[in-house]
Amino acid sequence: MTRLADEGLIPHRGKGGRAVYWLYLVPGLVLLTLIVLVPLVWNVLLTFTEWRGIRPPEFIGLENWIELAGDTTFWASFRNSVAMIIAMVIVPTLLGLVLAAMLFDLVGKKFGGRLASFMRATYYLPQVLPVVVAGIVIGWILRPENGALNTILTDLGLGALAHNWLGSPDTALLSIMVVLVWVQIGYPVVIFMAALQRVDPELYEAAELDGANWFQRFRAITVSVIRPEIFVVTLTCTIAAMKVFGPIFVLTRGGPGDSTMVPSYYAYSEFFQSQQVGYGATIATALTIVICVLVVLFIRAQNAVEKRERSGL
């Protein structure tokens, strides 16, 4: 019986056995090796070389890594990644929790499910756009001379507030963050609303009778029931936040100065503008390592929380 549990789901007679299934994996694994694994390893090897893309790469040991450690642009790019995480993970998750609970508990129950799903679709709308197009839409509103936002401000007599939003170091990063919050907000709302259907209404009624207010019920019941979804949302959004490229490319190109530089745009510009392939590869590898570490930390944190929950019961 124990051996059987490790068998394939289709019973078989005669020749072959489970090993034959490897044939089905051949195309997938060959493609994966060619398109992902080989380039990945190659890219790591490139970090130990100086290469301008024409003559053969030259081995220079750890020089790129040493240069990276002292590169202020590189560190600025990771500081800006923290801003991306605030804009794509923290704000959307918190706001998403509140909005999902509002739509599900209140709008859905007291004003009808159709209104709630219409609102949900509205919140989700920016999510379907290509991120670059979302960047272009908001970038259009923030145009310096005759942009919509500045024109509206002037018309309201607040002309003093008009500003070169994307062109000044003090507001460029903030403007990018606004784009990302706008793009991202629908995703947690949709996921959390689906998760809320698992919350047992009797639990809520009971808590209400015990005198728990809305916020107490929300914290004690809702958040603990939908915790798996909160983990999934924060994990996937954190990975996405570390990879932000499109909005930076269309809106600021990392500028002014380094104020909106992010690791992926920095790597791109080293590859294709400065032609410093080895250095670009080093930035990309550093980004990959950071993402892997974040994923491992996340999964460990999730397991720890689950364990604590189980022993707590």
Partner: peptide, 13 residues
């Protein structure tokens, strides 16, 4: 493969 940043594959590809 799905999680990797595409930058890490970009130049070799």
């Amino acid at each position: 493969a799905n999680m990797l940043p595409q930058e890490a594959l970009l130049y070799p590809l």
